[in-house]
Design a protein around this nucleic acid. Structure first.
Length: 135
DNA sequence: GCCAACGTTGGC
DNA sequence: GCCAACGTTGGC
């Protein structure tokens, strides 16, 4: 099972909204590399839900429930979306500052390529961040 | 096919 | 609000 991190600006789509919806289609990704990551997702894969801009922290865990399919909101037909469901909020949000302060996370995609909105998370990174989020 | 100009994202 | 990083566009 692979792990990922998906970003959203709370003003656009926040974690509380996601929890309320229970499930959502992750549309709006318009970046080739992020789209590649979406295509690599499989049902059952888990994702960190990260609030960019406001908060700048991992606030919850989501699970992929449907593999990539064409994003109907994309007129060019080039991009895809996946369906994800909310699993649970983390006990303690993991801030970007905390991630940057952790030497073992210096290669984390979130830090290395800050503009990418769908980032792969290595197993060791996933486990470590989960531990940090357990509080 | 190169590269300058421009737009967008996201951290600070 | 600014700026760095990076992607995209369009002229040549």
């Amino acid at each position: 099972m692979a792990h990922w991190l998906i970003k959203s600006e709370p003003s656009a789509y926040s974690w509380p909204q996601f929890v309320k919806d229970k499930k959502t289609s992750w549309t709006g990704v318009r970046n080739a590399q992020a789209a590649m990551n979406l295509k690599a997702m499989k049902p059952g894969d888990r994702c960190f839900f990260y609030h960019s801009n406001e908060g700048k922290e991992i606030v919850g865990v989501a699970e992929v429930v449907k593999a990539a399919y064409p994003d109907a909101t994309d007129e060019t037909g080039r991009f895809v979306t996946v369906d994800v469901k909310a699993v649970e909020a983390v006990k303690k949000p993991v801030t970007l500052a905390a991630i940057k302060a952790e030497p073992r996370l210096k290669d984390f995609g979130l830090v290395r390529q800050s503009r990418l909105s769908v980032v792969p998370v290595a197993d060791a990174q996933w486990a470590l961040i989960l531990k940090m989020a357990a509080g």
